[in-house]
Design a protein around this nucleic acid. Sequence first.
DNA 1: CTTTGGATCGTCT
DNA 2: GACGATCCAAAGG
Length: 212
Amino acid sequence: MGDHGERVTGVRSASGGQPPDSSFFDGTPPQVAPRLLNKVLAADGATARIVEVEAYWGAHDPASHAYRGMTPRNETMFGPGGHLYVYRSYGIHWCANVVLGPPGEAAAVLLRAVEPISGEDLMVTRRPKARRSVDLTNGPGKLCAALGISGDDDGIDITLEGSRIRLLDDGTPPPEEPLVTSRIGITTAVDKQWRFAVPSNRWVSRGRPAGG
DNA sequence: CTTTGGATCGTCT
DNA sequence: GACGATCCAAAGG
């Protein structure tokens, strides 16, 4: 296979692709989450491929922010699919989720890691502490910083052409057999295997299979 | 490579 | 008043 895990993905079109159709955001979080792998996130001058996600399922999921019902913070999760739910983590970082439909059902997929495609110089500017390319975006707080995502972006529609943050499909299919593990950083519902990642991708935050 | 602890503040109880 | 869907630096193997 590839030498030392060099990147095997790339840009398939100059525009980065087109948004998924609206039915893409239907279905349960554990179903839709792995289908978000290898989709493209476009933010201002930068694009990146989604390589690690986690599913969160409102009332069914004690680890979800929406488990105890709607609050001012998690209101976006209860809205329609195809929007972005952004929250502050540990008082310092921002984390971003893709909201799933329908309205009234709190469902979302946390973006945990992305692989830079273009605009990496801009990401370096936004994350000056990153020493290696993987350190730019191999974590939920890191990728938001690298892509310039903040609380101002909470609630935006990521399927619209005019949005600052967009979700695009450039024709790269999700992995046939994604890496499946428990979710990271939570203390409840640790039994659920709702973390999904592209196998052998260097930008995945942790839990890559040995020997890659 | 791993482990440990500090930073820092909005949110909910 | 307590606790994070995290990140980073420092210290030890």
